[in-house]
Nucleic acid binder design. Sequence first.
DNA 1: AGTCCGATATGCT
DNA 2: GCATATCGGACTC
Length: 204
Amino acid sequence: MMYRKLPKSFYLDDDVVSRARALLGCRLWTRINGAVTAGVIEETEAYDGLTDRASHAYGGRRTRRTSVFYRSGGIAYTYLCYGIHTLFNVITGPEDIPQAVLIRAVAPCEGLDTILARRKQERIQRNTAGGPGLVSQALGITISLNGSDLTGNSVWLTSGAEDEQPLDSDIQASPRIGIDYAGKDALLPWRFRIKDSPFTSPAR
DNA sequence: AGTCCGATATGCT
DNA sequence: GCATATCGGACTC
């Protein structure tokens, strides 16, 4: 079975909510110091820069950190959260339109020994890569990957196996996590998860 | 199930 | 300078 890299055109779609849904069931891969690991994406969140108070690029804010938001889709946005956790986002949309999809959970599927070693676990379990900071730990993602081309060879995405692609009816939408500061935008149903995924937590 | 708190880059004053 | 953050693990009820 070959997994085809998602083409640039996938990322250039200007509807970030549709991209957050479309990424469910795709595979996120890394090659770190020669070790290849991957997981099936089971939970995402959309961040629509210009209008979304939860986005780092809200209102068109341009800073050194947010500069990658404004590049055309198909690159990584990684940053340090709470001083400890690296969070991984997929930049989408055309140049100058700041949009991103946060990857919140994956089901480990390749390089399991490497993933378990990074997580200091004996076996794959709920919290191996269930949570945005844990996705990065499990796949070895660090802020040095910020801006990386997602069609490259360090971090990339592919379509999933046929039985990994969820039907619309398998996708549950709910409000996003950890953005209470965003006012009414905190209520937007822009978190998406594959129903019954053991690697994600149910809707609030 | 609820509370606490780490450890630091970032953005604003 | 200073408050804050797209979280997770440890600990207490």
